[in-house]
Design a protein around this nucleic acid. Structure first.
Lengths: 334, 334
DNA sequence: GTGGCCTCTGGAAACGGTTCCAGAAAAGTG
DNA sequence: CACTTTTCTGGAACCGTTTCCAGAGGCCAC
């Protein structure tokens, strides 16, 4: 049953030539006469031979595999990033190992171990919360690129200025006339979440607003719903709510619908990420755009560049612009 | 710079023992005195040694890696499946290689080649359109499980009865009073799409309806939008529209909003998959539920079972129930 | 004609583990 | 005490590929 796979030896034997020769035609690495080359090629075809990548990777320490650690594929923003990474990785023949960290550092460390054991050539880590020290310890000497996480000075990364994005969202609420606010933040140790909160506070300070409250969410719909219910329960809802991501904003909108609170007439709501569903909600959800697919693509290209030129030690850091997408959830009737 | 990783030899040398002995303590495969074991364990700790999985996989032909081929991670249904697969794969120490086929057989075949070259132990293929013959040729002797694709008699698979689901959706439209229909189908060679269309036609025949039309979409929002615009343009819209997936249904709803067509008063719309955003649309979108996460989980467990017991040739085929989720897009005012 | 440079080829080592084999020491058995 | 059995250990082959080394011709130049 377990019919042994056909190896380079089989094709060598078939042609009556040495394995080195076959290897040479495989890699075009040295002189091979065109007639033996043709014979070998024919044999490869006939025997249906495909070189064993494991053995290959074993000898030249190249696995053509990268790791992708994201918090959660079922979050549309991250699945966009994943798609961006994978689409371009495959072009260069790289396979992508998918890891869901659930924003937990232990899981991240566990995956990093797993990936290292598999000799991935590089890793893209999205939304990491780990400290710089923990990260470098866990990752060893494997090249990596961070997404949505700026590490001071050192690591190559792709991100948007979350603080500015948070300020953008909050300013927008202020400009349409809101004077009392709530912010639903992401997980407390998530770098992007703390930056967005800072952006929110920047505007509070700049406009000398003191009537605000901050709630702690976890970037999931459910937490937006829960917090929304609490906010709308006491009948004293703020005029503007900035949720640190779209999923929580959607949760808030559901809570509002349940409580009979009208958006945007009674409360304006804005999210963050610009995931596809924000366009389908009722009303459509204002948000801050982060180009997930593009960020994934760029992260991958930086990683590949590092792999090809390991000695150019410049840590590329690419910043994307957060862009306001004003939709109906913040469109007050005049 | 490229500091060589520490190998089994290094720890052997350190303890003054042979590599075989170290290998034995690593795998508990044979007698080792408890004191040498302790010494080896210490050395492993001190040197920070981690066995090279590539080398390991090379000798015992076990890579602890599986492949996951899905049409598109950024489609919420498939990202749910992906999450279900990965969550449980990692428990057994399996890494998951992510592949996006875009529903194209050539890409599927290309990925299959890639995965085979990497000696994945098994593959889960979601929504394949390839013929049975093509599939078995491309996949060789690698165990696999199909999701959303029932192959007559042979392959292990996890699916819902799409024909019944299609009928369920269509019956629902009929029951709420629709008498003229449109169906927006998925890509023509997608098995799930053709089954859903059959289910639609079953009901048309059963109820002797002739006033229906079928449009061909591609499972993306845009195609739903395009087709919706065409449908609503001529002013002669059907009473009920069954879109073969939720994304296209969302596109139809957008087209309706643009054209000033009210849902459900003027037209009832139902989708398929029950992806999360169906709950946030306005009105909320009726659909047929397919438990993506659960299907991924089960597919993985079947695959692992196959890997552990390669000689039990029973092809497990697990069927999930399609369930009607009646929401507001089909709730006619009485 | 002798030497040197291409072109082509095969042999063998190496990568980092696992596993089989054999032998030595220790322990048990009559 | 002679024997078998069990426990422990090292040596070596092996997995499938790449790559280094060396050698054999062929061709050209001097």
């Amino acid at each position: 049953m377990e019919k042994r796979a056909v190896t380079i030896k089989d094709v060598a034997r078939r042609v009556g030539v040495s394995v080195s020769t076959v290897s040479r035609v495989l890699n075009h690495s040295s002189y091979v006469s065109s007639e033996t080359e043709q014979l070998v090629l024919n044999a490869i075809e006939e025997l249906h031979f495909a070189p064993n990548q494991i053995a290959r990777g074993f000898v030249n320490k190249k696995t053509s595999t990268i790791g992708l650690i994201i918090p959660d594929v079922s979050n549309p923003f991250f699945s966009d990033v994943a798609r961006g990474v994978e689409d371009y990785a495959i072009i260069d023949g790289f396979a992508t190992i998918l890891c869901n960290s659930d924003w937990r550092s232990e899981r991240e460390a566990m995956y990093l171990d797993l990936l290292r054991g598999r000799w991935v050539e590089g890793v893209i880590i999205v939304g990491s919360r780990s400290s710089a020290a923990d990260l470098t310890r866990a990752i060893g000497s494997v090249p990596y690129v961070l997404v949505e996480r700026l590490m001071v000075g050192s690591a190559p990364s792709v991100w948007t200025d979350n603080r500015r994005g948070g300020a953008l969202a909050t300013s927008h609420l202020y400009e349409i006339g809101c004077r009392t606010f709530a912010h639903i933040s992401g997980p407390p140790d998530s770098p992007s979440a703390t930056e967005r909160r800072k952006g929110f506070l920047d505007v509070m300070r700049r406009e000398s607003v003191t009537a605000y409250e901050i709630f702690e969410g976890d970037y999931r719909v459910q937490s937006g719903l829960d917090i929304g219910q609490r906010i709308f329960a006491n009948g004293k809802a703020p005029e503007g709510i900035f949720a640190a991501n779209d999923l929580m904003a959607i949760g808030v909108m559901q809570a509002a619908a349940q409580a009979g609170v009208r958006i945007p007439e009674d409360v304006a709501v804005i999210g963050y990420d610009n995931i596809a569903p924000t366009d389908y909600t009722s009303p459509s959800l204002s948000t801050i755009d982060q180009p997930g697919y593009e960020m994934g693509r760029v992260a991958l290209s930086i990683l590949l560049k590092r792999l090809r030129e390991p000695h150019t030690a410049t840590a590329e850091q690419i910043e994307f612009e957060p862009r306001l997408m004003a939709r109906n959830s913040t469109r007050k009737a005049p």
